[in-house]
Each structure stands twice: as C-alpha cells, then as structure tokens.
Amino acid sequence: HNLTITQGKLFFHYNPKLCLSEIHKMEEVSGTKGRQERNDIALKTNGDQASCENELLKFSYIRTSFDKILLRWEPYWPPDFRDLLGFMLFYKEAPYQNVTEFDGQDACGSNSWTVVDIDPPLRSNDPKSQNHPGWLMRGLKPWTQYAIFVKTLVTFSDERRTYGAKSDIIYVQTDATNPSVPLDPISVSNSSSQIILKWKPPSDPNGNITHYLVFWERQAEDSELFELDYCLKGLKLPSRTWSPPFESEDSQKHNQSEYEDSAGECCSCPKTDSQILKELEESSFRKTFEDYLHNVVFVPRKTSSGTGAEDPRPSRKRRSLGDVGNVTVAVPTVAAFPNTSSTSVPTSPEEHRPFEKVVNKESLVISGLRHFTGYRIELQACNQDTPEERCSVAAYVSARTMPEAKADDIVGPVTHEIFENNVVHLMWQEPKEPNGLIVLYEVSYRRYGDEELHLCVSRKHFALERGCRLRGLSPGNYSVRIRATSLAGNGSWTEPTYFYVTDYLDVPSNIA
C-alpha cells in the first residue's frame, strides 16, 4: 500500500525493539523526510534493546553428524571492536523451508527459537588472519532439518551509529543413524509349514526405512522333555500350542467401542483428552525405555581390526524358502538304536541362519518350516543398504507352526516275539517326523474274553527296548493296539495285532 503524509511529521519514542533503520525507511515511504526535528525521533529510546544489523554474515563451514552440527561463519568486528559482546545463534526444527525470524513471537518477546549466546573469538592483530567464530550444536535429532541463523550482539553506541551483522536463515539436516526397533511384532501360524509375521514401523526411523531383515531359527525343545518319565503317576503330560491366527481386521481397528449394538453396526467412541494424553505418555515412556535398553543392555560386537582377528559373527547367506525346513542338525536320541526319531534339535552355532529381506511392506510369510516346531524370529529395521547396512537392534518374537495331521501315527506293522515265561516283546517304529517329539506310547492289549488293559511306555523305555515287553501273560489269544502321544496330543491307534500265548508248562520236552 502507498502511504503519503502531505502535512505533519513523524514522532517515535520509547520503541526499544524498533531499529532506527526501520524508522528511516518509514520517513522515505511516507514522504516526511526532512520535516522531523532532532528530538522527534529519539536516538536513545528507539532500538536500544534490539540488534540492528546492516551487514550480512556468511557461514564459512558446515559439518553434520547424526546428532551434531558444527558451524563456522566469517569474522565480524565493528569499528570499535570492544562493542562486540558476542553472537546469538538461533535454531529450531523446520520440516519445511518457510521459516521466518519472527515465527511464534508474542507480545512478551518470546519466540519459538532456541538461542545460544556465543563469546567472540580472540581478536588477531592481523586483519587478514582473524579467527572464524563458530559453535557445535549438540543433542539434535537424527535425520531432522533445522533452520539456523546467527547475528551479532553489540553494545549501545553513544554516537548512535547503527552497526551489526546478521546471516540469512539456512537449512541444515542432520545425518541418518540406526533406527529404533520395529514396533509390535506379531507372529502367527496359518499352516503346519508357515508363519505369518506382521509389525509396525519404528517410532524413530532416523532416516528413510529402506528394508527390513527377518531372521528365523528353529528352537530346540526343553531338555526336561527328553529326561522326564511322563508315565509316572502324578506327572502331567506336557503340551505345546501353536500360535493362533490373526483376529479379523475389524476387531483390530483402534479407537473402536468394545460393545456392539445388537441391531447392527455401531460407531466408534472418540477417545477423551485424558485417554489420548495417557497414550502419549505411555508411548514416550516406551521410547525412553527402549533407548535405555539399547544403550545399557546391548553391547556392540567388536569388529575385526587390522591384526587379522576374525569377526566372530557368522556370515549372512541367503537361502531359498524351500530350504528352511531342514535348518537344524538332527541327532538321534540314543545312538545305539537307529530307529528312534531325530527330534532332539541342538543347533550348531556355526550354522548360517536363513533370512529374508523385506522391502516396502511390514509383513512376511515364512514358508518351508517344520510342522509343530518353535521358531525364534528376529526382526531388524534398516535405513541404508549400501555401502553397508545400517540397521536397528533386533526385536524378537516366537511362534510355533501348526501340527501336521497323521504325523504322530505309527507307520509300519507292530511285530512281536514270544519268549519263555510268557513274555512277549512288542516292537514298532517311532514316527519319523512327529509333531514336536514323542513323549510316550500307549499300549492297549486284551486277552479274548477279558477286559482291555493299558500300559504306558516312556520315551526312554522305548529307546532301550525298541518297544516294550509284556510279562506274566496268561495263555490265550491276544490283540494289541499302540498309539503315540506327542507334544500336540495323541496320534491314531494302530491296526490290531494278534498273537497267541501258550502255557509254557505244557511245552513238550526233548528229553527222552
């Protein structure tokens, strides 16, 4: 807008934040220059609390790290170098490059900038070799853009010569660093050979998330399962459950009422301010606690030095998902009996873990797994792929695949051998790939016309006998059925096997 004052003059007093240069501009645009008398524009009460600059400061050096910015700028000295009290560095987070010096300023003089007072450097006698002032900004957020400017702080001049310097606002972004852990990993099994893994992005990506790394490792069953005799009275049979499938998407929606109208769909109840505040506090606490764990609990591995020492970490090797089922080394339970199943799973520490690289999504279907087997899954978020990966501390989750139908069934015939004193040795093959492992066998036998009897055969007993022995049988026709019990439950009964026990007292003698 054009402003013209045809008559009258300007009068400025007691404006401590208004620089004289701005008042002189007002004289020019209003056409009143030359009308004012000496005392109409006070030299001592206008701009006496402001830094009124008329020179431009330029930054000469900028260096960044993930949490620091090192700045240096060209030296500046007023005509009387004693008038320079120091520099004021202003900075704040700036997602967009549209910041002005006066953003967030209120009537009390406060604003949204963080201000650092910096002492002037030592003055050199040689004007050509003056030290460049600077400042190291610490405690910054990774991968965050900051708006920065600097200006001088000078003393009051009796001659009211307006001098000083100020830089333009520059924008500097800190470097990326390792992201925080992925949030809320959930693993479920939808079949006997697959596990579905879902997660949420890290709360602090500290860069642009480029991919996720998912490692999985087959877990050995508890050692007590191999040692305890679950045929003993009072000892509860062990059981394991597989990871249940995901709930429906509708039930997972946030901010939804727990109660549904019987007449149909209901609208979600909005969260109160107290609920939102509580969630923010919980989120802040979780982030602080995660940072504490990362800094205190997890110790970084030592990389190899120039002395030739090897990095103890196993090298990563990509495998196809079809090879995942046989990740671990199978060892027989008892070496003397080769027909026992290889369900003991000690994992070799030198073995390469299978892994998958996930790009542009937060889910993965891990296939080719062994049925009813526990897996430990390790999830890392990465925001750099080359020249070397920059990934987060791992988040861990466990899951067990679903049982395989008929995996616990005894394959092959049940054979028998009759000894003296009416002892019958029953023999059968253990299931080759049971659900988890076989903890015991149930032997059901009966003599024709009598009630059915049951015998429990422990895992250890089966390994020693290759089956079991029935003792003290009365003469007669017998039928026997056997079924295995694994961590997933009972298998199917075998087809009945028949044998006849004679009275050993009636056996004919070869003595003449």
Rank of each mutant, 00 (worst) to 15 (best):
Ser203Cys: 15
Asn206Gly: 03
Asn206Ser: 05
Gly207Asp: 02
Thr210Ile: 10
Leu213Phe: 14
Val214Lys: 00
Val214Thr: 06
Phe215Glu: 02
Phe215Asp: 07
Phe215Ile: 04
Trp216Asn: 03
Glu217Asn: 13
Arg218Pro: 09
Asp222Gln: 04
Asp222Lys: 11
Ser223Leu: 06
Glu224Gln: 07
Glu224Ser: 04
Leu225Gly: 03
Glu227Phe: 14
Glu227Arg: 08
Leu228Ser: 06
Asp229Arg: 10
Tyr230Cys: 11
Tyr230Phe: 08
Cys231Gln: 01
Cys231Ala: 01
Cys231Trp: 01
Lys233Met: 15
Lys233Asn: 09
Gly234Phe: 06
Gly234Tyr: 06
Leu235Glu: 08
Leu237Tyr: 06
Leu237Cys: 10
Leu237Met: 09
Ser239Val: 14
Arg240Cys: 05
Thr241Arg: 11
Thr241Lys: 11
Ser243Asn: 12
Ser243Arg: 11
Pro245Ile: 14
Phe246Ala: 04
Glu247Asp: 07
Ser251Tyr: 04
Gln252Phe: 06
His254Met: 13
Asn255Glu: 08
Asn255Gln: 04
Glu258Pro: 01
Glu258Phe: 14
Tyr259Arg: 08
Glu260Gly: 03
Ala263Cys: 06
Cys269Ser: 05
Thr272Ile: 06
Thr272Ser: 07
Asp273Ala: 10
Gln275Phe: 03
Ile276Cys: 02
Leu277Val: 02
Lys278Leu: 06
Lys278Met: 07
Glu279Gln: 06
Glu281Val: 06
Glu281Gln: 06
Glu282Ser: 09
Ser283Lys: 02
Ser283Pro: 06
Ser283Tyr: 14
Ser284Ile: 00
Ser284Tyr: 03
Arg286Pro: 04
Arg286Thr: 11
Lys287Asn: 14
Phe289Val: 11
Asp291Met: 09
Asp291Leu: 07
His294Ala: 14
Asn295Phe: 15
Val296Pro: 12
Val297Thr: 08
Val297Ala: 10
Phe298Pro: 04
Arg301Ile: 09
Lys302Tyr: 14
Thr303Ala: 05
Thr303Gln: 05
Thr303Val: 08
Ser304Glu: 15
Ser305Ile: 11
Gly306Cys: 09
Gly306Met: 14
Gly308Phe: 05
Gly308Val: 15
Glu310Ile: 03
Pro312Ser: 13
Arg313Trp: 09
Arg313Asn: 15
Arg313Met: 01
Pro314Phe: 12
Ser315His: 10
Ser315Val: 11
Arg316Gln: 10
Lys317Trp: 03
Lys317Ile: 11
Arg318Leu: 05
Arg318Trp: 15
Arg319Tyr: 03
Leu321Pro: 09
Gly325Ser: 12
Gly325Glu: 06
Val329Phe: 15
Ala330Leu: 15
Val331His: 14
Val334Tyr: 08
Ala335Asn: 13
Ala336Ser: 10
Ala336Gly: 06
Ala336Pro: 11
Ala336Met: 05
Ala336His: 11
Phe337Gly: 12
Thr340Tyr: 09
Ser341Phe: 07
Ser342Gln: 03
Thr343Gln: 11
Pro346Ser: 06
Thr347Arg: 02
Pro349Val: 04
Glu351Ser: 14
Arg353Met: 08
Pro354Met: 13
Phe355Tyr: 11
Phe355Ile: 11
Glu356Pro: 14
Val358Gly: 14
Val358Ala: 12
Asn360Ser: 08
Lys361Asn: 08
Glu362Arg: 14
Glu362Ala: 10
Val365Ala: 13
Ser367Phe: 06
Ser367Met: 02
Ser367Tyr: 05
Leu369Asp: 01
Leu369Glu: 01
Arg370Ile: 11
Arg370Gln: 08
His371Gly: 13
Phe372Leu: 07
Thr373Gln: 15
Gly374Asn: 13
Tyr375Arg: 00
Tyr375Glu: 00
Tyr375Ser: 00
Ile377Arg: 00
Glu378Thr: 14
Leu379Ala: 09
Leu379Glu: 00
Gln380Lys: 03
Gln380Arg: 04
Gln380Glu: 05
Ala381Thr: 07
Cys382Ile: 01
Asn383Lys: 02
Asp385Phe: 08
Pro387Ile: 07
Glu388Cys: 13
Glu388Tyr: 15
Glu388Lys: 13
Arg390Gln: 11
Cys391Ala: 00
Ser392Ala: 01
Val393Pro: 00
Ala394Thr: 13
Ala395Gly: 07
Tyr396Pro: 10
Ala399Leu: 11
Ala399Glu: 05
Arg400Gly: 07
Met402Leu: 05
Met402Thr: 05
Met402Ser: 10
Pro403Trp: 09
Glu404Lys: 08
Lys406Ala: 14
Lys406Ser: 07
Lys406His: 06
Ala407Pro: 03
Asp408Gly: 02
Asp409Gln: 09
Val411Cys: 13
Gly412Asp: 10
Val414Pro: 11
Val414Lys: 01
Val414Trp: 01
Thr415Asn: 02
Glu417Leu: 05
Asn421Trp: 11
Asn421Gly: 03
Asn421Leu: 08
Val423Gly: 15
His425Val: 14
Leu426Ile: 02
Trp428Phe: 09
Trp428Lys: 01
Glu430His: 10
Glu433Cys: 03
Pro434Lys: 03
Gly436Trp: 05
Gly436Ala: 15
Ile438Met: 12
Ile438Val: 13
Val439Ala: 13
Tyr441Ala: 00
Glu442Ser: 07
Val443Met: 06
Arg446Trp: 07
Gly449Lys: 06
Gly449Pro: 09
Gly449Val: 02
Asp450Tyr: 05
Asp450His: 14
Glu452Asp: 12
Leu453Asp: 05
His454Ala: 07
His454Ile: 11
His454Thr: 08
Leu455Phe: 05
Cys456Gln: 01
Cys456Trp: 00
Cys456Gly: 01
Val457Glu: 02
Ser458Pro: 03
Arg459Leu: 12
Arg459Pro: 05
Arg459Thr: 08
Lys460Arg: 09
His461Cys: 11
His461Phe: 13
Phe462His: 12
Ala463Tyr: 04
Ala463His: 07
Glu465Ala: 07
Arg466Trp: 14
Arg466Val: 03
Cys468Phe: 04
Leu470Arg: 01
Arg471Ile: 11
Arg471Phe: 14
Arg471Glu: 04
Gly472His: 05
Leu473Asn: 03
Ser474Phe: 14
Ser474Gln: 10
Ser474Pro: 07
Gly476Gln: 00
Asn477Arg: 10
Tyr478Leu: 00
Ser479Pro: 00
Ser479Met: 05
Ser479Lys: 07
Val480Leu: 04
Ile482Gly: 00
Ile482Cys: 02
Ile482Ser: 01
Thr485Leu: 15
Ala488Asn: 08
Gly489His: 14
Gly489Leu: 03
Asn490Thr: 11
Ser492Ala: 09
Phe499Leu: 14
Tyr500His: 08
Val501Asp: 02
Val501Thr: 05
Thr502Tyr: 15
Tyr504Trp: 12
Tyr504Gln: 13
Asp506Arg: 11
Asp506Leu: 06
Pro508Ile: 05
